[in-house]
Amino acid sequence: MAAIEQLGDWLGEFLGGRKGWFRRPQAGIYLWGGVGRGKSFVMDAFFAAAPVEGKRRVHFHAFLQELQVRMQDFAGQSDPLARVAREIAGQTRLLCFDEFHVHDIGDAMLLGRLLKVLVEEGVGLVCTSNYSPDKLCPNPLYRERFKPAIALIEKRFSVFSLDGGEDYRQRSTELEAWGSFHWPEPEDGGALIRQQLGLGDGALYDQVLEVNHHPLRVHAYEPQRAWLDFTELFATPRSAGDYLWLIEHFPQMAVGGLGRLGDYPQSVSQRFLNFIDIAYDRALHLQLYSSVPLEQLAEGGNAVDFARTLSRMRQLKAVPVVATPERG
């Protein structure tokens, strides 16, 4: 309730413009807190109610992918990012940005300069994050380059910690599952997966798809459904745009071959976490098949943000795989 009140007060002041010669309204609200605390819920409720023309709600990975695509339109011109940011500002009065985080230098450079231009152009911003502003970019290799963006947030945004001490996603009886988690993975050559995914007689098996001009081998697919392998999806370099393409074409998806993330390089684990972020935001109906229980998935790994991923995966319906008894 306190967060909603602060959002309402800020929006009224923001839409009212300057209150005096020396005072200008805050550029936005920065909501941060632990996983499952209701940040996205509050922001989405605010977005739905805000009486603003030209409002947008975006998710971290999809929005960065959009920026990169739009920057290609200005290839060869000076400062393509600033040009795209001004385009966005010309179309958007209120931008709600979910899952704000910074884990690599590319994201840091894009987000830092984007924020600066949007604030200068007068776009109202509401951001949610699992991190306080000063913890946004912990990697010392490029933290110095992101410090101006942190300073901008701390100076021009109202920073609000939203954390009642409970992960609401753990109330599994009150939340609708967005898919299923199957353990242990069946050893029947995939017959159970094909059945549970609902693949029909027209499904194509052992195919190679072109995903954003890159090959991706799939166990099987048909319109709206695909059965994929963990290693094929995450062990080779793939972008958020690839995962967005797959979810757009196959809103029901089964992924087999999961194991302990600690058995893979950090880059593989991070791609899996990015995929779960995107899948959750885009309401993918996901079936995961794992060789280890959910609580052991992250053992030995060092992927960043696994707490958020685990919270979301706990919303998957747990389906124990029972071996078919042998007939005598």
Rank of each mutant, 00 (worst) to 15 (best):
M1Q: 13
G8P: 08
G16R: 08
K19F: 07
R23A: 12
P25H: 09
G28N: 05
W32C: 05
G34R: 11
G34S: 12
G38T: 02
K39F: 00
S40F: 00
F46W: 00
A49Q: 15
G54D: 09
R56Q: 15
V58C: 06
E66V: 08
Q68T: 12
Q68E: 11
Q68K: 15
V69W: 07
M71A: 03
S78G: 09
L81G: 04
L81H: 02
L81D: 03
V84G: 03
E87G: 14
E87K: 08
C96I: 01
E99C: 03
D107S: 08
D107T: 02
A108D: 08
A108P: 06
A108W: 01
L115A: 12
L118D: 09
L118E: 12
E121P: 09
E121W: 05
L125T: 03
T128K: 07
P133R: 05
D134W: 11
K135R: 15
K135H: 14
K135M: 12
L136D: 04
P138K: 06
P140F: 05
L141T: 10
Y142W: 13
Y142P: 12
R143I: 00
R143N: 13
R145M: 13
P148Y: 12
I150N: 12
I150Y: 15
F157K: 05
G164M: 03
G164N: 04
Y168T: 10
Q170S: 11
L175E: 14
E176T: 13
P186T: 02
E187M: 14
E187A: 15
E187G: 11
G189K: 02
A191W: 06
A191Y: 03
L197Q: 10
D201G: 14
D206T: 11
Q207S: 10
Q207F: 07
V208M: 08
L209D: 07
E210S: 15
V211H: 00
V211E: 01
H214M: 00
A220C: 09
Q224E: 15
F230R: 02
F230T: 01
L233Y: 03
P237G: 02
R238Y: 00
S239T: 01
G241R: 00
L244M: 05
L244D: 00
L246E: 01
E248I: 01
V255C: 07
G257P: 07
G262S: 13
P265F: 09
Q266C: 12
V268W: 04
V268I: 07
R271Q: 14
L273A: 14
L273D: 04
N274D: 14
I278L: 08
Y280H: 13
R282P: 04
A283K: 13
H285D: 15
S290R: 09
S291V: 14
P293G: 11
E295T: 13
L297P: 10
E299R: 11
G300V: 08
N302M: 09
A303E: 12
D305T: 07
F306K: 11
M313P: 11
Q315W: 05
V319D: 05
P325M: 07
E326N: 12
